[in-house]
Structure formats: C-alpha cells, structure tokens
Design a protein around this nucleic acid. Structure first.
Lengths: 118, 118
DNA sequence: ATTTATACATCCAAATCTTATGTATTATTT
DNA sequence: AAATAATACATAAGATTTGGATGTATAAAT
C-alpha cells in the first residue's frame, strides 16, 4: 500500500464507521479494520491509532453506544449506532457522500450512471 | 455550505490542484478557488488559508512552477505543472483517484458504469 | 464615499493522522 | 517447548493539514 493513499484517509474515517454500522448493527474495532482491508482488497487500511480515537469520540458525542463482551478470553467492545441517533447518522453519511460526489465532479468528470444493486 | 463537508476536504486539496492544472495549463490561486466553487455549484470551497500553503508546498517540492504577472494593476501568480513533472503529477492523481474509488467501494456499494464524455 | 470583488499572503488553534509503543490472551509455527 | 503471529484493546508523541481570522493592496461597483 502506498503512503499517500493513507494520508488521504483524513476525514473519512467517520464516514466509514457510520456506513459499516448502518448496515451491520454492531461491530468491534478490530473487526472494522479487517472489514475495510477486505472490502478494498488490502488497498485501504484504517490504522488502530486513528480508529480507536475516532470511535471514542463518536461514543462521547452519543452517536454510538457500546457493549463490552469477552469472547474466547479476549475483551471485545461492540459499537452500534444509538437508537435515537439513526437519523443523525444517516444525515452525516449523506453529507459526506455528497461531498465525495462533488469531489468526483472535479477529479473524474465523467457521466456516471448508478444502478442500485437490486 | 455545511461545516462538515469543509472538514472533509482534508487531503484532497492537492488532488484538486493537480487535476485542474493538468487540464488548464496554468492557473492562479484565486482562480482555483473560484473554479472549484463554480464546478460544484458552491457546495465545495477551498479556503485561501488552505490553498496558498498547499500551492507553496507543491512549488517547494518542484512539482509546480510559477510566473508572476501584473494584470489590471493587480499581481497574479500563475502556477503550472513543471515540464519534467507531468508524469509525476499524473501518478499522484491516479493514486488519489484510486483511493477515492476504494472509499466509494465502502460508502456507496453500487454498480457504477462510467461512460467517458466523448 | 463606501462597499464589494479581485488577488496575494500569513498566523494560530483545532483536528486528524501515522508511527510507535504498550498490555494481554489465544493460535500457530518452529 | 518456545517463539512468533493473530486477535483486541488503548494511548502518546510528533507531523501535517485545515479553517478562520487577519492583513495588504488595487479596481470596480454602488
């Protein structure tokens, strides 16, 4: 993986967290790291030094709630979107996606036809 | 413009600069600001406090060269991609675009069919 | 005459990221 | 059996980046 791609991740970690949690109910930190690696075939990596502070911040803001469990002798901290924050999370995501679309407008000025998967 | 979209710009200013200069030969700072506003219908803004340091840095790295001219009594500093750095700039851009595509893979997992504009 | 637009630039504070480091348990390899 | 890798959390230091404020200066518009 190249370094610059990593650098670029700035600002988008929250988007990734919210997106994944909006479709998976609950996940733990390590799981999020792995999922991102897997989904991007290893081309994108969220470092733990960036992820955990981001998770803690979202928790502190009340967007995420946590449940800690012990699985196979190891502690796991599951994060999920707080019940009363679903709408909030959706709004944040929409905002971020809009931003990325605007950016694409500049970087890749093609006609993009999106066909929803079912 | 909402605040969060601004925040997200982190890391992508260089991409915007390189992209615009790769297709316009030369531009000056203020022009870049206006162009971005225009292309995104006012939804994305590059602030001068972010743009000028970024331009200076790219110049310092030898990626960009400048010519200063006085137009209508006002100084203008034109930036262009250095002749021997065209390839470099293309590589940087490709890297950034790849990153964004990976991010889209997570954020908007749709089938995207791109049809180049002619 | 005053405000807005053009055009440059810098500084500071806040936010974010990378890298490194640390703890601890379980699984795998040697 | 011992060492390494994987799992899973977390924090701290330092670097980079950005937003917002501020500043200079000229031309155009009100």
């Amino acid at each position: 993986m190249n370094k610059n791609a990593q650098q670029l991740l700035k600002g988008s970690i929250n988007a990734v967290i919210l997106k994944l949690l909006s479709q998976t109910e609950r996940m733990y930190g390590y799981e999020i790291c792995q999922k991102v690696k897997e989904m991007t075939h290893g081309e994108l990596r969220i470092t733990e030094g960036a992820l955990y502070p981001a998770l803690h911040k979202l928790e502190g803001e009340g967007i995420l709630t946590t449940q800690t469990e012990v699985v196979d002798g190891r502690a796991r901290k599951y994060y999920s979107i707080a019940n009363d924050q679903q709408g909030n999370a959706v709004d944040r995501l929409a905002m971020i996606q809009n931003f990325l679309n605007q950016l694409q407008l500049i970087l890749e000025p093609k006609d993009l036809i999106s066909i929803p998967v079912k």
